[in-house]
Design a protein around this nucleic acid. Sequence first.
DNA 1: CTGAAAGCGCTAACAT
DNA 2: ATGTTAGCGCTTTCAG
Lengths: 333, 333
Amino acid sequence: MPVTIRDVARQARVSVSTVSRAISAPDLVRADTRERVLEVVRGLGYQPNPAARSLITGRTGNLGIVVPDLGNPFFPSVLLGVQARARESGNSVFFCDSGQDAVTEEELIRTMARQVDGVVVCASALDDETLAELSTLTTMVLVNRALPGVPSVLMDSATGMAAVVEHLAALGHRHCAYLNGPVRAWSNQFRRTGLREAACRSGVSLYELGPYEPTFQGGARGVDAALAAGVTAIIAYNDLMALGVLTRLAELAVAVPERISVTGFDDILYAAMCGRPLTTVTMPAELAGRAAVELLLDRLDNADGPAESTIRELPTTLVIRSTTAPPAGPARL
Amino acid sequence: MPVTIRDVARQARVSVSTVSRAISAPDLVRADTRERVLEVVRGLGYQPNPAARSLITGRTGNLGIVVPDLGNPFFPSVLLGVQARARESGNSVFFCDSGQDAVTEEELIRTMARQVDGVVVCASALDDETLAELSTLTTMVLVNRALPGVPSVLMDSATGMAAVVEHLAALGHRHCAYLNGPVRAWSNQFRRTGLREAACRSGVSLYELGPYEPTFQGGARGVDAALAAGVTAIIAYNDLMALGVLTRLAELAVAVPERISVTGFDDILYAAMCGRPLTTVTMPAELAGRAAVELLLDRLDNADGPAESTIRELPTTLVIRSTTAPPAGPARL
DNA sequence: CTGAAAGCGCTAACAT
DNA sequence: ATGTTAGCGCTTTCAG
């Protein structure tokens, strides 16, 4: 039987409204009264019932985050950032993993919408229309996805990919394969754009393969096609795939980076920890999480504000490690 | 302005209680009335306000999970299991990362306690006393930690560690180092117990080093001490540390497994994905998450039940991969 | 500066 | 089988 505001009021010999004020609007209460009340609050270990509070204020004090795959270390990092910023602002956070499935994702967002003040949707698999509709249900912020009218945090992956291509071109590569991630994913489209333009500019011919699952398995699967295309470098959609590529290449006894170069994207922790540290692009995942919550809180505070489509773009940077080197000889023998 | 139960009642020409029943106790309402109500519910897109419902039922429909480090892939896996089982039972889940800090952990649990029906605490850094006190605040289930009166899900790490030692002993190793994780952690104590007993039985001398942070860095840090001790095998507290060991060893140009064997614990995804796949012990993380929720739901359903200390013990298995081999020669030269 | 009172949206007795 | 009503614990006018 938890202690209620009435218990506090009785023991402090004031009315419940005074207790309420002492807690949520301290300057509306005379200093000594306030002290007396807070004393009792501490003594009894009173904590307001969030449900009751939420019922009247309309705010839950909860935020939600939906990610496609917690198994990809990129997303736990985003979660970390979200939690950090949420806690600073006195919010709790719900999480959901959609398993990269659009139907599940929609369902999860609908369910969350009722219980949170706002939700951060990462790398959504939903089409613009559905997403737009869902965004009317609750305050929404997108990560790695853009949609008119919905604030979003973008990581500049086009530039990151361009850096990859330029790096490869500078090393002398002329024939590169790109292992596509989910084609419908905003991230993939954007990465591909950066890729194509840079390839064009630097005279690199690009072999687009896939789409593949953005996982270790997916990467492994793409290797044979890439090899068949006779490229000297494989550009993976993300690190997980790149790791799969590396493993498959090792099985086939293809030397990296001597015979073939490999690049990833995201810079997950394990990219650096693996036998052969991966050349990849750093994504500020945790920062993105924080930024997303920031945007959410902004929206929440001035709900009446214009529905301007705020976009926070975060920079990415190429990290050159051990999986890229000049090609062994002419691209095609 | 979300639609309320009254809107539904009005439009369906029934009282609010009928609507309430049609939703939460359908068999108390005549079929045709129920249909009419549910029709309107769908039409209006009505969803009950969870706060209002919770205020009266005393149940929030939320569960919480506290983990020490989301950056360790073991925990996202647990989260996945928790979410899956929670969703099946119509619950949502809050998460928190304590950053391996006891003070933060306590604070987080206290905060959560107000908003959830129960909480899963993983690998707690708290002492028994504090934990026992917190367990009175809300229904609690522990993962990888035992405490009288609190149900817990344990992974049989003692046996797992014993298997590691036996494997090493069978290969001919006689001098092994153990890189301790956090000494106060239940997991570490248990792993160490299994280790010692098995070492004793199989005539292996054990050099206990540390404690170290249970991270990549921590593992790297332990290598030099292990080398100085002249061992032929390094047993790390977990995979993250083992990965650190591998990397540091590579820097020092010490061949694995030729000159030294290395083992991890947890079998995180990356253990298998790394250049040299790690010999480790598989922990059923996702299963543990599910089991924890299961226990939580049990407790929630018969709250009056005896406070028996239910323990679900999950098996672990040794996975032999490429980082263990017979020692090169006599242990000490 | 403080108190009284009216609900927030819903469920659960209690009537009918 | 359905309706009426009294709150759950809190915030917030509105008076004083």
